[in-house]
Nucleic acid binder design. Structure first.
Lengths: 344, 344
DNA sequence: GAAAATAATTTTAGCGCTAAAATAAACTGT
DNA sequence: ACAGTTTATTTTAGCGCTAAAATTATTTTC
């Protein structure tokens, strides 16, 4: 039961169009169009007949034609570093949950944490003339910035907030504050030899680290010693490896802040393998408060980032903007919550 | 620095078009179009001038117009049950990695495991006239089936394979075999009171369960007793709860096959809390072989589903079909691997 | 019951692009 | 040097839809 591929270059023969429907009903195409898009402009009788005919013929509107005619694509482009990352799948879900019911399509693109790729992607995405764009992070290349500026569409920058002026709108949290909060918490708990494990080391991770180190410095602690970072992407396994490195290099470390929960899981597993008791011998904390953080043994002290809410709020802002509805604030800090659990 | 939303209904004033470029260079629009799409049809000199002018004016092609003219959208629609699920984010990554470099857009849609939603989604997606569709599962409503049939585009059904004729192409694994393999493994290990914990209970989970129960029956074991299922979506927490139920209802259970790794993590954590030794007191296994399976303590015996490869292979099949390249087989079983680790 | 207001429908024109056909320009070989 | 061929460019026409203007039908008003 093989299907022929739509032969390249065929000018759409065969497909049912608006005018096919119009002809079948015996009205103008405009009436059919109105019946679909502005039902109140068409008499009830006709509307019913048109609806029946559409069902009968199996007519499916052609979005490209509509887009061309209206200059609105009903599409929101979303630029994120990585799809296969739980953090972003939560954010994306928030975006979808808002956009889909309002008949907006979501066009996802993946930068793999590269500003160069981001530039190419943004330029490619603009080809589709999305009605708006939701893009991760405040930092971008000059050219990306210019492209977005020139596109003159609503933009929501997500994930982080605060340290820089957004192009247009902005929803996120302060990663510096998140790091600082964790630093203050651990220092306040009385830990003295406090370390940091960082993977990926993108802008937001760096800001969390900076906030963390600032807090340690303010508490009068040596914040340079127990620092292990890599630019490799986060995995649970890598978290374990880095924790092993930490314990080898600094057997006296008392507490470790991992740059995210996955890394923290790996660190906990590694400590378990070494029969280190958590938190009495070593304390461990994470960031994000993913699904597993509350379940793992010991349960993970972490910082909850409102991931789903970031996506949802960003999409809501976008929708409001597109409908010309009033917007109270174009910069929204959704805040963080320290989740104190067993691991520290 | 706020942007005005693109006013609804404005007929695209202001945007640079092909003819703007053509006028600036002093050639016909067709020459500019060729310079972009069939460079070898345009003299080198002209090509360079056109390229410069495009950069200078900041021209961005309008995809909708191209789509309308060529009747090809360069878009692949992808229908999955859930985006915020690690399983599917791996599959999706495979699809993106193939499609993006070839300039195909990916349009994602989410059924939330509902066949009714799937029907609506498919019908909505067809509005965009994707060049092809990748859709999860072999089961679908009659109407969905008809819609896809009528769309006459290449279709790849993914995730499962074998028990039913696909509409067009098919890439996946046999979930029945996966369940059976695990059943045989546990029975072969000498476990006698073997249980199953199932969440979500979608078609594929059910087939895994059936395969599992078949294997137990073949081994002469009572396969009905130690069975706990729910239609709630999988979470680590839920895995823990169901494991708690299992241990309460059947304190004598020796081994438990969890319908996926997340649930298995929860089960392991729950056993840890109850100070049950794994696998000596209770064996636990999962399905998928996610990132954490090899890292958790004890490491999780599970079945590796080639998730990324399913996405990649499906997308490759699709691309071949769209380029009219020969396809060896339209039904591909990528097979499973039992990952024997510490937990069973 | 004719003029005015409203509702329902159609006509016209164009969104930005490209396939295919037509034309013009640049090379062949003899 | 001229028909024959190839290469480069332009013209024509249309993809399927909708905004806006124009027309026709219906209702309201006094």
């Amino acid at each position: 039961m093989a299907h022929p591929p739509s032969t390249p270059g065929n000018r759409s023969k065969g497909r049912i169009t608006l005018s096919d429907v119009a002809r079948a009903v015996g009205v103008s195409t405009m009436t059919v169009s109105n019946a679909l898009n502005s039902p109140d402009k068409v008499s009830e009788l006709l509307r019913a007949r048109i609806k029946d005919t559409i069902a009968e013929l199996g007519y499916i509107p052609n979005r490209a034609a509509k887009t061309l005619a209206t200059n609105r694509t009903q599409t929101i482009a979303v630029v994120i570093p990585s799809i296969s990352n739980t953090v972003f799948s939560n954010v994306i879900k928030g975006i979808y949950d808002v956009c889909t019911p309002l008949n907006y399509e979501v066009l996802l693109a993946n930068t793999y944490y590269s500003l160069q790729k981001e530039e190419d992607l943004v330029s490619k995405l603009l080809t589709q003339h999305p009605d708006g764009m939701i893009i991760t992070g405040l930092d971008m290349s000059d050219r990306t910035h210019k492209l977005l500026q020139a596109a003159a569409i609503p933009i929501v920058q997500i994930m982080e907030v605060g340290h820089q002026q957004p192009i247009d709108m902005n929803v996120g949290i302060s990663h510096f504050e998140a790091g600082k909060t964790m630093g203050q918490y651990l220092a306040g708990k009385g830990y003295r030899r406090i370390g940091f494990i960082g993977t990926q080391m993108d802008c937001r991770t760096q800001r969390r680290m900076n906030g963390f180190l600032t807090a340690l410095a303010e508490a009068g602690l040596d914040n340079e010693r127990y620092l292990i970072t890599t630019s490799d992407p986060s995995t649970i396994k890598l978290g374990g490896q880095l924790m092993a490195d930490m314990l080898t290099q600094h057997p006296d470390v008392e507490a470790v802040f991992c740059n995210n929960d996955d890394v923290a899981y790996g660190a906990i597993y590694e400590c378990q393998r070494r029969k280190l008791r958590i938190p009495s011998q070593i304390a461990i904390t994470g960031f994000n408060d993913l699904d597993g953080a509350a379940c793992i043994n010991p349960s993970l002290t972490t910082i909850k980032a409102p991931l789903y809410e970031i996506g949802k709020t960003a999409a809501e802002l976008m929708m409001k903007r597109l409908k010309n509805q009033p917007i109270e604030s174009t910069q929204i800090d959704l805040g963080i919550t320290l989740k104190q659990r067993e691991s520290a």
